[in-house]
Write a protein that binds this DNA or RNA. Sequence first.
DNA 1: TTGCACTTTAGAAAGTTTCTCATTACGTTC
DNA 2: GAACGTAATGAGAAACTTTCTAAAGTGCAA
Lengths: 161, 161
Amino acid sequence: MTKRAPSPHEIDARAREMLGDLKRAGLKLTAQREAIVRHFASDATHPTAQELYDRLRPEFPQMSFATVYNTLDALAAAGLSGTLRVGQAARFDPNTTPHHHVVCEACGAIGDVPAPSLAPSPAAVKRLGRAAPGFRVRAVERIYRGSCAACARAEREENVS
Amino acid sequence: MTKRAPSPHEIDARAREMLGDLKRAGLKLTAQREAIVRHFASDATHPTAQELYDRLRPEFPQMSFATVYNTLDALAAAGLSGTLRVGQAARFDPNTTPHHHVVCEACGAIGDVPAPSLAPSPAAVKRLGRAAPGFRVRAVERIYRGSCAACARAEREENVS
DNA sequence: TTGCACTTTAGAAAGTTTCTCATTACGTTC
DNA sequence: GAACGTAATGAGAAACTTTCTAAAGTGCAA
């Protein structure tokens, strides 16, 4: 949830890893892709395509919107990026470790919640067996909805007055 | 998951309930709202606004798209409808009992999975305390991703050949 | 029955995502 | 190191989803 700015070294490490994986997947390394990955790789804010595009504009004023989508699609196809839908626009997530999300319904902030695994629990499998017979579960995605620390504090103060 | 057609009696019962609640919430009963509720109240397919609009067109050829959104917003404000985001378009859900969803990643079908409660488990609260300190959880939403019975069968047969 | 406030309609507009196609350029091959 | 084939980019159009506006219509309380 906290938007701690990763050190340049961290950015480079994850970005380099992603670029290597992209190349290994048979994709070409272009300047645009490198820039997108550099901005996206360690971004924990779950940016939209628009937000990434805006951030890249100063560096690549002539870049097309389609290139942002193309690259994010390529990253997703290579398993290097996930998609999160909690509003009109899709949000992209470079975190490929198992995790869930917290969503603040007041300010819209999104955070990661590490999880040991996305596999369904035995209890969930049992319920699924009844509710959707024959369904084969691959992963369970959880969204914790509520109020982030700052908004929860604001709500408490509002209730006091 | 199965799209069992509810009997006319079931449709009327839930629709009547919804319309009564709408009126109780201080909203006016119009012919359009009645038609939308009649089509939506017992629909377990999680339709998009477009799908509802298409279904209503034969009956109300002059109805506006905005009316569908207005009515669904009104239902949501009255707590009679929920929203589900698993693709570009929002999907609407008349089921107001605690439940999660299964989503078939092959065909896109969506189903309900009844749950005793949407409150977070103690284990989840503990993890959240570490990952997002101060976050106040209101509800946990789960999406079970995988393959529905029909698509899972098709995948098995494909693997055999 | 009247009148007010809420609804509806039609279309424009805003926002998101995909597509087309001509041009560019990565990366392999020679 | 040059040439080539293929993949990627750019620009804009287009498709799709959702919201907004203004004028006309209508439910319902008084």
